[in-house]
Design a binder for these strands. Structure first.
Lengths: 334, 334
DNA sequence: TTACATAATGGCAACGTTAACATTTGGGCG
DNA sequence: CGCCCAAATGTTAACGTTGCCATTATGTAA
């Protein structure tokens, strides 16, 4: 076997096929102005030499990378896998690739995510925010770099997209009220969670909108254990016929906590969660919950960048509603 | 505001700073052979113009992208998030970026993953295999493109890395035998899962190595429901004192199934799962399980590519053992 | 036959960067 | 004062690709 040349370029293919470099390029792009037999000859040469177009040369020439950068502060997080599925799907649709970067060890600012990205071959960037970056208010996206933030907070200069947490709470509370419950108790989450706080607000607002003063909430910490404790605490409250938990783990924990105090779900108390994360993990329950479409969130973000194609499209804010999935943990009191 | 120039290059910075392009380049790379005051002048010019180095030009010149491509057939999958965490961490360590590609809609072959990658700016690639690609035996990696497969099957031309499923079963079975159990029953998974089959083999082999003929296994389908059914079936078997389930969902389902037949865990039957995926979802149990280090798997893969730095390092096969995490679902019979 | 349109192909330059080499400048020392 | 060395900076070319324009074949109408 001959020594492998560092890299095969159009020039090599052109020489072997006996055509100009330009004709090779045209063949690569399947231009109609190359004779079929010429194309075939060029293709044969490409195969023989193992030619593959050089991305750097191409991007340099074109000034575009056909790539969207994704910056994450924490990669492990509920829904991130689905979001990535969305990124990848949308990118694929537009012929784009995704470049993933973890912004970690660096300060939690949009600026650091942005500067990390600026040296990478990307045409635009998506930042997944888990909590509030220090410079959220003052951040300016890099010129020429379309920037989309995955967050429910609106930003004056960047488009944003996220699950609609407010609407989620509205759906759950109204669903329970429609089923005849007089009020809805709430198991919340730690106060630093943006999405959790929005759920809490939504719960409160919806109750008030229906003329109901929200009862005292029970603060949890996302774990089933905290839900269990909350369930036990609420078991003795006679006004409590419906509980809305900020995630499924707490909802399931709550059910078990209620059961430990002799209350049955849904006969005595109805329970609803959020996230649809129990899936196939729990055998005995089909929890009523809200399923978010994180894939769609991811797709929207990449569509916004890859779909724009150089057009300076305006700043947009998108909230994508979840879907309430009926299980067997809610009793109809009507 | 002045019209934004398409892109700011070293040339522009050089002109403004009154130095040569080379000096700008040297400043970017913080070369010691540029006078500090010159550097400062150049830096000021860079700031003023908003210069950021062009990745395409740089890669073209250097012939390297400092990027590792990751091809996935299915993005959603147990452990993928942790693996990505590993990819990103290792890439960060080496100053590399990660480019993610979904190989979907295309045929399930290594060839299609490979050709998809070949047009992207990557120096090497990682393929996450969930099942057996049609061309696994015949596949040849692209010349010059270091390719690592995430699979437990060894490949003659590509390095491979994965969790050690065999060892996982060995650990679980020996742990149970050491705790005085005479045999270990097994709840398996669908036969098309590579990792599941390897767990099954490991279970069988370890029992045989200890002179025990493996009992009839119960086939599950990864869901808690199937584990529940398996638990009910095994509840009536007096020889069954220890059950090893192929994942945590089935293990948890199994526990509940046993309980539904009046058996207590761990008093009557011990149960062990795999994956450590129950985490904070279940309030009342700390399942004994095996935790895999998918992050390390991911890091190994990227290290292999980014750490090589052009050196043609040999094909290696790496299996990374999991860690048995003791919960409260195993009874010591000794 | 000539003129002229059309199809197919070729030549050249430029994208932004940096390695290699070339040049200038400033000092130290005989 | 001249020599040489080192530090600092400049010049040139090339990486691979493709847009633009020029050129050459091929056919078609006047």
């Amino acid at each position: 076997m001959a020594a492998v040349k560092k890299s095969v370029s159009v020039k090599d293919v052109a020489r072997l096929a006996g055509v100009s470099e330009q004709t090779v390029s045209r063949t690569v792009h399947d231009s109609p102005s190359v004779r079929p037999e010429t194309k075939e000859r060029v293709r044969a040469a490409m195969r023989e030499l193992g030619y593959r177009p050089n991305f750097a040369g191409r991007s340099l020439r074109r000034g575009k990378f056909k790539t969207v950068g994704v910056a994450m502060f924490n990669i492990t997080g509920t829904g991130n896998l689905d979001r990535m599925e969305g990124f990848a799907a949308a990118a694929d649709k537009h012929g784009y690739a995704i470049t993933l970067t973890k912004v970690d060890g660096h300060p939690y600012t949009l600026e650091s995510a942005s500067s990390r990205m600026s040296a990478l071959p990307v045409d635009g960037m998506v930042v997944i925010m888990n909590r509030m970056p220090a410079d959220f208010g003052t951040f300016e996206p890099l010129p020429g770099m379309q920037t989309v933030l995955v967050t429910m907070l609106e930003h004056p200069l960047c488009s944003t997209v996220d699950n609609d947490q407010s609407d989620c709470s509205r759906q759950v509370v109204e669903y329970l009220l429609e089923h005849g419950h007089k009020t809805v108790h709430f198991i919340s989450c730690p106060e630093r969670s943006l999405s959790g706080m929005r759920r809490e607000e939504g719960w409160r607002e919806t109750l008030r909108a229906h003329g109901i003063e929200p009862p005292q909430l029970v603060r949890g910490d996302w774990t089933a254990q905290s839900g269990y404790a909350a369930g036990q605490a609420l078991a003795d409250d006679p006004t409590c016929t419906a509980i809305y938990a900020s995630n499924d783990a707490m909802a399931y924990g709550c059910i078990r906590g209620l059961e430990s105090r002799g209350k049955c779900v849904p006969q005595d108390v109805s329970v609803v969660g959020v996230d649809d994360s129990l899936g196939d993990i729990v055998p005995d329950r089909r929890l009523t919950t809200v399923r978010f479409d994180n894939k769609r969130v991811g797709m929207w973000a990449v569509d916004k960048i890859a779909g724009a194609e150089g057009v300076v499209s305006g700043v947009e804010h998108m909230l994508i509603p979840g879907v309430l999935v009926e299980g067997d943990t809610v009793r109809d009191l009507r």
